[in-house]
Design a protein around this nucleic acid. Structure first.
Length: 846
RNA sequence: GCCGAAGUGGCGGAAUUGGUAGACGCGUCGGACUCAAAAUCCGGUGGGGCUUCAAACCCCGUGGGGGUUCGACUCCCCCCUUCGGCACCA
């Protein structure tokens, strides 16, 4: 037997070396071919990657290789999101400097990526912790600072006690730290923020440009931005006439306002209660309410509490005087921090009013019904007809809403307004392992940005990482003490670092000119290559990385640095791979290591199984048995090609004449073309690699059945070895060759190493990826005979074989001639006949 | 509570616009090869009924209940379950 061993280890090493050598994935800036930017979310270098991470990169690699074969000039870069807390926490634990552990991890991960056979342009590799990179992250910060989009404020922040740093709102999930799941506290600290709220409307509007994003991601972003349309209405303090604007989405209920509430943080509180009898009590209440933890403060379960300030405000629609309260459920960050309360038509206000005996005044009633406040057990929040609303009585509330706002606007006491749920983005981190914020504080000049030519502000290396609630950088005198760029006087540096999210907001621009030392990116190249044609990553970044990147790109666009508005044209979010029903994690002990798997079966097997496991956008359960199945398939393919290679070598595919072939070969020829058709459709239409692979498996099964020694293909092999693939059957050899080559090519983006090797076995010169993707012959996919199922009253009763071109009449008479059909129609009348061309016939009988 | 996705054999999953439900793989059962095992190859495999066995045949079957249709995993209505996201945002 001439069958060779499937020695995957050697094969994979061989071709990985070869691709590197010929620069298969090196992007050529001068190529005239159409560009395609394929991007995978770059890895965070914490320890090693598991097979779950692999899915992301494997899918990306399939896209890269497929697009290359489709003739595109592909850019497929890789890098490392290297700043961040885990490295620093590890340093605290075992004393290894983050710079060292990060470098070590990068080395290991780079090795893993290469062993997977992933195609990257390694000459463009970047890591965000390198000064050559973070210099430009700091530059981005300065660009925002110049436009007033970066500012410092003493803000109540989400504080993660375990990470010992502040967090952005996007990093808080259900009151817990997104990373470590510790409960988040509120602290008051001076922080650096980005005015992402200035871009809220555009971030929302431009979601409509992202028609190649999964809808759930755009919906999540829209929800996160949380736009509400309403009105800003100007109430005034009764004594001083000082304006106290509030935002409402229900100006139609203005006549039902019976009190007003202020957020405990509201700056006005202190002023208005000064020297009043209730001063102490009110301030005490406000302080207590403020100290609540974020998740306690913002749940509907919170017991609604408040206190009367002793002051009153005037309602602009009817000049009514209503009491002003402080309430624990009012939020300073939303609207104006002052809320008009309409207990009859808002559930929170209703509960509050009931508790404190405040009046409830109905101003909207359901159509055709009365509504009495004494009988209400909950607020009526639906639409209805205005009552107790002066001249607006009798109007439907939607109309009244518009009129009331118009009338207020005419009197200068209100206007249409929009409020957003999204908050400004807190980017300060009180930790070491990040890019220092490039700001200097000078006693004379105040806050001074570090001049561009002084970048990067380098991270000092020698440092004590132990978290103290403020940045470790504050303890390094050499770092803190500096000179003011303006007056040359003594000054101090900002000691917070930039949240790592900013590093990943622009890395996809850096890939175009990764080594440029004079600028962050090359504008010509960036404008040519962006937006990214296909971005691939996890859905967990829906409102973090993906929202932040959109924001930063818009800022850069506005300043003329780039000419596109959105960074990622198409997004694909792959599902998670779980094991034993849970996300893979070291602590759960359910991590499947790719390294062992590759040792045992090879990278191609792992790749094939990962792609075969299910539709890539869905979560999937990892199965060790499934891996074995993938391996078996590759081995079968290997044996088949090895076995046939010699016989088909001289055959000429061009000379196939289907009519001259025996039926089995004709079927294989047809199957080959059907498979070519299906695989491209599955890849292009829905990325369903699992069904594409299944189709090739079918082809290989069919091929296996064509083996000379297969009982189905020939008589038991006699003393003569000539068999059906002997010299007299060149046409048959050509069909076999065609099928083998198609199978190998169609699998090549999925299992590139074995494909290259078998391509060579079949007598071709590498690389298979220089071949263009196979095309199918429509004519070859047409069957001469087709099977038509026969239904009687919608139930399947029989099947008949008919000529593909058979007319309806012919099909019908063939069906009626069928024995089983006769049995079922005996003595009955055929009422109707439905024929779906080439699909089925249904006889309706009675 | 609101929004979204999903529910198909023992398991992962297939089924263009409504048109043969269960492709492909795993598992399992039977067989071949073997002293034996592994590997490999061949064949069966949704449930049930009928049947000595088999074939043939019949019934049921895509979370549950209705409906539309010649025909429904697919469309419509109601309900259940699971998973994601949001959740005092005025």
């Amino acid at each position: 037997m001439s069958t060779r061993e499937y020695n995957f280890a050697d094969i994979e090493a061989k071709w990985q070396g070869y691709w590197e050598e010929i620069g298969l994935f090196r992007m050529d800036e001068r190529s005239p071919r159409q560009k395609f930017y394929a991007l995978v979310m770059f890895p965070y270098p914490s320890s090693v990657l598991h097979v779950g991470h692999g899915r992301n990169y494997i899918i990306g690699d399939v896209v890269t290789r497929y697009k290359i074969m489709r003739g595109f000039n592909v850019l497929s870069p890789i890098g490392y999101d290297a700043f961040g807390l885990p490295a620093e926490n590890a340093a605290i634990q075992d004393g290894l400097h983050p710079a060292i552990s990060t470098e070590q991890n990068i080395k290991r991960i780079r090795g893993q990526l290469k062993r997977w056979g992933l195609g990257y342009d390694w000459s463009r590799e970047i890591a965000t912790h390198e000064p050559e990179y973070y210099k430009w992250t700091q530059w981005v910060f300065l660009k925002l600072y110049e436009k007033g989009l970066a500012y410092r404020a003493e803000a109540p922040v989400n504080w993660c006690p375990s990470c010992a740093t502040s967090l952005a709102n996007e990093e808080v999930v259900a009151g817990r730290c997104e990373r470590c799941e510790a409960e988040v506290e509120t602290r008051y600290l001076p922080q650096w923020l980005f005015r992402i709220t200035d871009y809220a409307q555009r971030l929302l509007d431009d979601l409509s440009l992202l028609d190649q994003w999964p809808q759930r991601v755009t919906v999540m972003q829209a929800n996160w931005i949380g736009r509400s349309v309403g009105a800003q209405v100007e109430f005034r303090l009764a004594e001083t006439n000082q304006p106290l604007p509030c935002f409402t989405t229900r100006p139609d209920t203005l006549f039902g306002v019976t009190f007003m509430t202020l957020a405990p943080e509201h700056p006005l509180i202190e002023k208005i209660v000064r020297d009043t009898p209730g001063e102490k009590e009110v301030l005490k209440f406000a302080r207590r309410a403020r100290s609540l933890r974020v998740q306690e403060r913002t749940t509907p379960e919170l017991e609604k509490e408040g206190i009367f300030t002793g002051k009153y405000v005037i309602n602009p629609v009817n000049d009514e005087k209503v009491p002003l309260w402080v309430a624990n459920y009012a939020l300073m960050e939303y609207g104006t921090g002052a809320v008009m309360a309409v207990p009859a038509h808002d559930q929170r206000d209703f509960e509050f009013a009931k508790k404190y005996g405040l009046p409830i005044k109905v101003v909207i009633r359901p159509e055709g019904e009365e509504l009495r406040s004494e009988e209400m057990s909950e607020a009526y929040i639906e639409d209805g007809i205005q009552v107790n609303s002066g001249k607006y009585d009798g109007l439907d509330n939607r109309t009244a809403m518009k009129r009331i706002v118009e009338d207020l606007a005419a009197r200068g006491r209100g206007k249409e307004a929009v409020a957003y749920r999204i908050r400004d983005w807190i980017i300060s981190r009180q930790r070491y392992w990040g890019a220092p914020i490039p700001i200097i504080y000078c006693d004379k000049c105040g806050e001074v940005p570090v001049p561009e030519e002084d970048l990067p502000v380098r991270l000092p290396e020698k440092i004590d990482f132990t978290p103290k609630g403020k940045s470790p950088l504050a303890t390094v005198a050499d770092f803190v003490n500096t000179i003011c760029p303006h007056c040359r006087g003594r000054a101090r540096r900002e000691t917070d670092t930039i949240a790592q999210w900013l590093c990943s907001c622009w890395y996809f621009l850096r890939y175009l000119s990764p080594h440029a030392s004079e600028r962050p990116f090359d504008p010509t190249l960036v404008n040519k290559w962006l937006p990214v044609d296909q971005y691939i990553g996890g859905v967990e970044h829906a409102v973090l990385h993906l929202l932040y990147s959109r924001f930063i790109v818009k800022v850069l666009h506005d300043q003329g640095f780039v000419n596109f508005k959105e960074p990622f044209k198409a997004l694909f979010t792959q599902g998670m791979i779980v094991k034993d029903g849970a996300k893979m994690s070291k602590s759960k002990g359910n991590v499947v290591s790719p390294d062992e798997l590759i040792d045992k079966y090879g990278a191609d097997t792992q790749r094939l199984y990962t792609l075969f496991i299910g539709p890539p956008e869905k979560d999937a359960e990892w199965s060790d048995r499934g891996v074995l199945g993938a391996f078996r398939f590759l081995k079968r393919l290997w044996d088949l090609v090895s076995e046939f290679a010699g016989e088909v070598k001289d055959a000429n595919i061009e000379e196939i004449e289907p009519e001259a072939l025996p039926p089995r070969m004709r079927r294989l020829h047809r199957k080959t073309h059907l498979t070519i058709k299906k695989v491209a459709e599955d890849i292009e239409r829905s990325w369903h690699f699992n069904t594409a692979i299944a189709a090739v498996m079918e082809l290989v099964n069919e091929l296996g059945a064509s083996r000379p020694q297969s009982p189905a293909a020939s008589q038991p092999v006699g003393p003569s070895k000539a068999g059906p693939s002997g010299p007299s059957t060149d046409g048959q050899a050509a069909v076999l060759k065609e099928a083998l080559e198609a199978a190998v090519m169609l699998l090549s983006p999925f299992v590139p190493h074995i494909a290259e090797e078998l391509w060579e076995t079949l007598g071709h010169k590498p690389s298979i990826f220089h071949q263009s993707w196979p095309a199918y012959d429509e004519e070859a996919t047409v069957a001469e005979e087709i099977e038509i199922p026969i239904q009687i009253n919608g139930k399947l009763r029989s099947r008949i074989l008919v000529e593909a071109e058979a007319t309806d009449e012919e099909i019908k008479s063939a069906a009626l001639a069928d024995q089983k059909v006769q049995k079922h129609t005996e003595g009955k009348e055929i009422k109707r006949t439905i024929i779906v061309p080439k699909r089925l016939i249904n006889l309706v009988v009675k």
